[in-house]
């Protein structure tokens, strides 16, 4: 999978090993979203999606990293975040993307809900090796 970052736009990498790290990821994404001048609603959606995915990385992936930064294409800028873990992976992606389905004790809204809240959503998972989720929210 290609990383969303352009040359010179290297992202910062943050560890997700403890519950407090999820709070930090929310703050990092908030700062980036404000930097990109996302609308208040879009900021809120992006931070919420990042919170869901960071918690997934911690709970289901056994911890991992989040790379976050600003991305741009020809006409627009946005915030991107890549959530990576070396956990068990997802055996059935369609099932995992279904509202209400959970392998843990959650509500089953993390993955499916996060996808609805962002503009670009890519999931790459290999059972036994880990999961990578990439999300982008573009400024309008």
């Amino acid at each position: 999978m290609t990383a969303p970052w352009a040359a010179g736009d290297d992202p910062q990498v943050y560890s997700v090993a403890r519950s407090a790290d999820v709070v930090q990821i929310r703050q990092v994404i908030r700062a980036l979203a404000q930097q990109c001048r996302l609308s208040l609603v879009d900021q809120t959606k992006m931070i919420t999606a990042a919170s869901e995915l960071a918690r997934n990385t911690l709970t289901y992936g056994g911890g991992g990293t989040v790379s976050a930064g600003v991305v741009s294409d020809a006409s627009k800028r946005g915030v991107a975040a890549v959530f990576e873990d070396s956990g068990p992976g997802i055996a059935d992606v369609d099932q995992a993307m279904t509202d209400g389905w959970t392998s843990g004790g959650g509500l089953g809204l993390g993955l499916s809900g996060a996808r609805r809240l962002v503009d670009d959503f890519r999931l790459h998972t290999v059972p036994g090796e880990g999961t990578t989720v990439t999300i982008i929210k573009w400024a309008r």
Binding site: V41, K45, G113, A114, R116, L117
Partner: peptide, 14 residues
Amino acid sequence: MRPAVAITLVELGL
């Protein structure tokens, strides 16, 4: 609850 939070919660599925 802030309006942006309400919009996001509903879209999230809650």
